[in-house]
Nucleic acid binder design. Sequence first.
DNA 1: CGATGCTTTGACGAACTTCAACGCGGGTGG
DNA 2: CCACCCGCGTTGAAGTTCGTCAAAGCATCG
Lengths: 251, 251
Amino acid sequence: MSDKVVELSKIKVACKDCSLFQLCLPMGLESDDLEKLDVIIKRRRPVKRGEDLFRVGDGFRSIYAVRSGSIKTFSPTQDGQEQVTGFHLTGELLGLDAISNNYHPCTATALETTSVCEIPFERLEELGHQIPSLQRQLFRVMSREIFTEENHTLLLGKRNAEERLAAFLLSVSNRFKSRGFSPNEYNLSMSRNDIGNYLGLAVETVSRMFTRFQESGLLTVERKHVVIHDLDRLHDMAGSSRSSGNTRSSG
Amino acid sequence: MSDKVVELSKIKVACKDCSLFQLCLPMGLESDDLEKLDVIIKRRRPVKRGEDLFRVGDGFRSIYAVRSGSIKTFSPTQDGQEQVTGFHLTGELLGLDAISNNYHPCTATALETTSVCEIPFERLEELGHQIPSLQRQLFRVMSREIFTEENHTLLLGKRNAEERLAAFLLSVSNRFKSRGFSPNEYNLSMSRNDIGNYLGLAVETVSRMFTRFQESGLLTVERKHVVIHDLDRLHDMAGSSRSSGNTRSSG
DNA sequence: CGATGCTTTGACGAACTTCAACGCGGGTGG
DNA sequence: CCACCCGCGTTGAAGTTCGTCAAAGCATCG
């Protein structure tokens, strides 16, 4: 069960050997329970930039964990627009919003070449009956997702453009940090358009804010590449965010 | 276990005799499983208008189902403001956002005299291991909550004042309808202030929109009382809302 | 009956969107 | 290898929506 081998097209890394172990679903599981989970997980070939992991209306079968790369989820609105509902970075789950309807309410598109673990939900549910700690972790993950959505709501409800972009950059920063990457320097895989859409702002406003942030010495930005010079100030500007983290998990 | 009696201060109605049976947690449960759930549920004395069911930071022990009345949940923001994160009507659950953090990230205040069922989460979790259909229902409820939050996000991200208020009124309408009340006529238990806060609008803007809606013949409003004359048009105005319902459940 | 809190209304200004144009960079084809 | 093209990002100007400020109307309650 655990002698997974690295192949060319199907990279098989057992949960126990995965660097995301502490962030992902198996967090807190005992070794033998971990293997049970490991067995039901499907490792798929990487999704290329622009390809979809699933589409709006697709039947719900699995939830997904991002192993590397990043994914955006978005829903169509009645007037034919799209609304970006979330960005999912390494170690984050998506698809949880499909459980109740039994189909995916959003489309998931890779922002760059991305590997995911596919976790068939029925089997996960069965496993949950056997492994209480997995059950609990699953509840925790879903609850955190609700909490995260509330935070996003909070952001869009009361905050101006400056605060929104600051909060967004801070959120990305925190998420990279908790995965062992630099919180001060990273590449944004999503376009300005996606960011604006997600934050409820026009692209132009996002661009202007980036310029303003840079002029004030808060950060340096060049296309996708962001270097944050003053995380404390960014934090102050973000203001609104509720006490706890901004960790995303589903979409 | 099922011979609950109506008392004066503690109204005891077994799940199987509750009119919300089809909307609430026990949906789809077999008779004997229902009784198991029934046993762990605590019926508390009603919460009066303005009283809190729980407060921000309170330790998480239970989730709650609204039996009658309504509750608003709100979180403090860093600058001392409040952000209303949800309204919870009859048959809806709240407290699900506390599972991951182990404390409540929001305060829940009664908007009118409100009865709730308190469901100790640890015991519910245990019961979930025994009763797969309860487990599944719990996942479904949590997933629906994520979906609902996404919808709220969508609303705040892209929609103007008119669309927001229309979507809000439509959501309330749908929720009353699914509980067997009139979708065309209802009383709003929350203040204009709460509505504005929830929708990310100034109170004055909400008021102006109500006036505009009334002048256009869409509805009649007098303080809390709302009569909707043209649900179809309201639906068109709300526009943005994603395909499925607006059913809330947690906060 | 006055006090208080909620709601409405009007005037004004600020923030953000929209429209338009331009710059830049990466990819493609000659 | 260079030139061109196209998408993305930036910048400027004008327009609109909504928030803020101020004041008055109106119900509820002591």
